[in-house]
Design a protein around this nucleic acid. Structure first.
Lengths: 183, 183
DNA sequence: GTCTATATAGTGATAGAC
DNA sequence: GTCTATCACTATATAGAC
């Protein structure tokens, strides 16, 4: 009796996200995923013919999920409060301290990344930057935030401060499991 | 006529550093290095028997270099000025925008990293943290900096703000070369 | 010191039986 | 849908000639 297609598919996507959040793109394999989900690697390829397909869909799902949460932030709230909620959104992702924003993780690998995945990651940052830019411009207009006339640069430095810093913070704060693999 | 030992050895270390700064540990190979330096992979192994050996020495050399620059910061300067010079040190590394602090890069890969390399990276962050903690405590005593009574946490959030954010900022700011490899 | 040749294992990927 | 079997390729690594 074949399992419900969506269940396996979704399990694959979720575990792929999780693996990439902790190990990045080139440090996880179809075999890793196979062992976690309980299907053979060739079965994974029924759903995702190539690793690039899998990663692309995982990133897009992640991006849509995060951005919808961000776009749902009450637009009538003061800019300062919006930024606070934004920061909280990414704090939620970190969880136990081993996980990290998926795109923050893949950003480190941006160069060796397959083209389409790289573009998806860059789109994520672009969307975040646009949102932050708008909120900062808004805060400046309300005189509640000082972006020193350069909301663009300010937005970059702001999101850079807590979003992609997560990987390194993790390296300092806690020892990744002592039984961890190494090559 | 064999080439001077130190020349090849140092070329290997430099290129290994450079490769890891742009691609990370598991995304560069002895073959890549071989093509850059102009010796066969088996010759690389004459100097560095394993990839772990090579990476460890590259990280240690990098760490010693960076920390010596930081420790050379005039100890009689006000805390604020010290922090400014510290930030400038890491700005120097970024260079053309493709390079990134080596340990900031490897931090993303901290879990799959070989044990000794991982420890070296963590030592680097520990050393940075200690230095920043001291300077922040000093600034607080001078009443020139407000670390809100928690120099430890403040130091973490401060170095996290610009050091490991580099990989992601790079993903946003500029398109890594269009001719870049992808797997 | 540097090389060629080779071993071994892991990777993403394909073909085809059931 | 899931599997076994297999491919081509790349990786790290070793042995030994020169």
């Amino acid at each position: 009796m074949p399992m419900d297609k969506n269940t396996v598919r979704e399990a694959l996507l979720e575990h792929a996200q999780s693996l990439m959040m902790t190990r990045g793109y080139n440090d996880f394999s179809y075999r890793d995923l196979s062992e976690l989900v309980g299907v053979k690697t060739s079965s994974i390829r029924y759903y995702f013919p190539s690793k690039e397909d899998l990663a692309l869909e995982a990133v897009n799902a992640y991006s849509a999920d995060v951005m919808s949460t961000i776009y749902a932030i009450d637009s009538s709230a003061p800019a300062e409060k919006k930024l606070d909620r934004y920061a909280r959104q990414f704090g939620r992702i970190v969880g136990d301290g081993r996980r990290v924003c998926l795109c923050g993780m893949l950003a480190a690998e941006i160069e060796p990344l397959p083209e389409k995945v790289r573009e998806a990651v860059q789109s994520f940052f672009k969307a975040n930057e646009n949102w932050l830019m708008k909120v900062l411009a808004e805060g400046e207009a309300q005189d509640t935030l000082d972006a020193r006339g350069k909301p663009d640069a300010a937005a970059r430095s702001l999101y850079a401060a807590f979003l992609p810093g997560q990987p390194a913070r993790r390296a300092v704060v806690s020892n990744p499991r002592a039984s961890g693999r190494s090559r």
